[in-house]
Simulated scan of single mutants.
Amino acid sequence: MQKLNFPSFEFRFKNTKNKLAIFDIIRKKFIQLTPEEWVRQHVVHDLIYNKNYPEQLINVEKVIKINDLIKRYDVVVFKPNGTILLLIECKAPQIKISQNTFDQIARYNLLLQADLLYITNGLNHYYCQMDFELEQYHFLPELPLYILKP
């Protein structure tokens, strides 16, 4: 798999029926290793091991319904109260991050109402803070560390 713009992590792999799989520590199972999954697993490991986001608050690849369409988000991080802190959209490394990618995560966020947005293809990372009052987002230089506020 391609080297990504993340620190190095230890991953578990297995080969079944000539298909390589990677162990997802959130879903607790092996997932077929695609370029997008490679990015997603790096994101999850980075959240937990470098940014201090609690593993139990992270959710991966769940179905949501937007305007009667079935969609699937990549990663969310919940707050302890159950609202969403962070919505993450992962693309394969060969996919360029475009305005369409930002539009996609913005559509998802109309429903999910996350405070922070994170878009990555594993090579380029974009972080945004939502301003719901002005209905816009502001770019951040990096993803904030997880700090539990009372």
Rank of each mutant, 00 (worst) to 15 (best):
5 N>S: 14
6 F>I: 14
7 P>M: 15
7 P>A: 05
7 P>L: 15
8 S>Y: 11
9 F>L: 14
9 F>R: 12
10 E>T: 06
11 F>S: 04
14 K>M: 13
15 N>T: 14
19 K>Q: 02
19 K>A: 00
22 I>H: 13
26 I>W: 00
27 R>S: 05
27 R>E: 07
27 R>K: 11
28 K>G: 06
29 K>W: 13
31 I>E: 09
31 I>S: 07
33 L>P: 02
34 T>I: 08
36 E>Y: 02
37 E>A: 00
38 W>F: 06
39 V>Y: 05
39 V>L: 08
40 R>T: 00
45 H>L: 10
46 D>N: 08
47 L>T: 05
48 I>Y: 08
50 N>Y: 15
51 K>R: 12
51 K>V: 09
52 N>E: 04
52 N>T: 04
54 P>C: 01
55 E>K: 09
56 Q>Y: 06
56 Q>F: 13
57 L>P: 02
58 I>A: 09
58 I>Q: 12
59 N>K: 11
59 N>V: 06
60 V>P: 12
60 V>E: 13
62 K>C: 02
63 V>D: 04
63 V>C: 07
67 N>M: 05
67 N>K: 05
67 N>S: 03
68 D>P: 08
69 L>A: 03
69 L>R: 01
71 K>W: 06
72 R>M: 03
72 R>Y: 13
78 F>P: 00
79 K>T: 08
79 K>V: 05
81 N>K: 08
83 T>V: 05
87 L>F: 10
87 L>I: 11
88 I>A: 01
89 E>S: 08
91 K>A: 00
91 K>Y: 00
92 A>Y: 03
94 Q>I: 09
94 Q>P: 10
95 I>Q: 04
96 K>E: 11
97 I>W: 01
99 Q>W: 01
99 Q>Y: 02
100 N>G: 03
103 D>V: 07
105 I>H: 08
106 A>Q: 08
108 Y>A: 03
109 N>I: 10
111 L>W: 07
112 L>R: 08
113 Q>F: 04
114 A>L: 09
115 D>E: 13
115 D>I: 06
116 L>N: 00
116 L>D: 01
117 L>D: 12
117 L>F: 06
117 L>C: 14
118 Y>H: 00
119 I>Y: 12
119 I>F: 06
119 I>D: 04
120 T>A: 01
121 N>K: 01
122 G>F: 02
122 G>P: 04
122 G>K: 01
124 N>Q: 05
124 N>T: 14
126 Y>R: 02
129 Q>R: 12
130 M>F: 06
132 F>H: 12
132 F>C: 07
135 E>F: 15
136 Q>P: 07
137 Y>F: 12
138 H>K: 15
139 F>H: 13
139 F>K: 15
140 L>I: 08
141 P>V: 02
142 E>V: 01
142 E>Y: 15
143 L>M: 08
143 L>R: 04
144 P>V: 02
144 P>K: 00
145 L>Y: 04
145 L>G: 02
147 I>Q: 14
147 I>F: 15
